[in-house]
């Protein structure tokens, strides 16, 4: 693995690796093309990096999640699963959750958590401390 991650992500959002976890912050006002790029960037990153066991997607900036955005999120979770990672959504607005249910959207591939701490708990991951519990397989 390269010492520096210099390869451009072509991602509209920063992808941050934290131990065995990849953290994605979805920007607000997400265009369809940007959602698609985000999906591709996550897939590329998961393919490149070994040992990522959990994907945490922060959707708190999204005040609207319509059927398209929901489908891209669902597909991202599917891709993550094929790389052996579990996906947890954090920061889903309650109004958005209600709307998704009424839209008849099935997000069974996704878990949701109230915050990052609970997301990590669901992924059975914890933030690495200085006692040498380093990342990597």
């Amino acid at each position: 693995m390269a010492p520096f991650e210099t390869a451009p992500d072509h991602s509209p959002a920063p992808l941050m690796k934290l131990g065995h976890c990849l953290f994605v912050l979805v920007p607000g006002n997400l265009r369809d093309a940007a959602a698609r790029e985000l999906h591709d960037a996550v897939a590329a990153r998961l393919a490149k990096e070994q040992g990522i066991r959990g994907l945490v997607i922060d959707v708190s900036a999204l005040s609207i999640v319509d059927s398209y955005a929901a489908r891209v999120l669902d597909e991202t979770a599917h891709v993550a699963r094929s790389f052996g990672s579990k996906t947890v959504l954090v920061g889903l607005h309650p109004e958005v959750a209600v709307t998704l249910v009424e839209l008849g959207i099935d997000l069974t591939g996704l878990e949701t958590a109230l915050n990052l701490e609970r997301a990590l708990a669901k992924l059975k991951l914890r933030i690495v401390s200085e006692d040498g519990d380093g990342p990597g397989p």
């Binding site: 369809d32 005040s63 609207i64 999640v65 319509d66 059927s67 398209y68 607005h93 309650p94 109004e95 958005v96 209600v98 709307t99 009424e102 839209l103």
Partner: peptide, 17 residues
């Protein structure tokens, strides 16, 4: 109401898309 706002905005989004 906030929830109705999101419902309606989502519907508008679907139609526009």
């Amino acid at each position: 109401k906030p929830t109705d706002c999101i419902r309606v905005v989502t519907a508008v989004s679907e139609l526009a898309r």
